[in-house]
Amino acid sequence: MPFQHVAEISAWLAGSDITRLELSGPEGVVRLGQEVAPATPASVAVRSAGVGVFLHRHPLSTAAFVAPGARVAAGQMVGLLQVGVLLMPVLAPSAGLAVGYLVPHGQIVGFGVAVLTLESLPQEACA
């Protein structure tokens, strides 16, 4: 019964960059969508480039690579993907302001999973 979960699915959708979702069941079809308002800054998701354990910080460190609200440069390391003993960098595809991590420290993520949201810098949005 898809209608039961519309509220929580909508909330989840809001935190993602998925713009349209269609749920179908015996009772009918629900189409959920979100409009990206042209006035609000565009957001970009930093995605995992592989399967592994996503880390907010280096295992020897207590500080996360980025804090919410921090400016992030294009190519800056925002997390680590751990596979066995190997630690690979997760890099920001573009500059932006860090909104927050989308998965907890130490969670297993798959390929392409959004791990951090970046909001475009205001001056860039104006430019």
């Binding site: 280096h58 295992p59 020897l60 390391m77 751990q82 003993v85 190997l86 630690l87 690979m88 960098p89």
Partner: peptide, 11 residues
């Protein structure tokens, strides 16, 4: 460059 490993003391 730009990758690393877990220290044995943590593993």
């Amino acid at each position: 460059v730009g990758f690393g490993v877990q220290p044995a003391g943590l593993v």
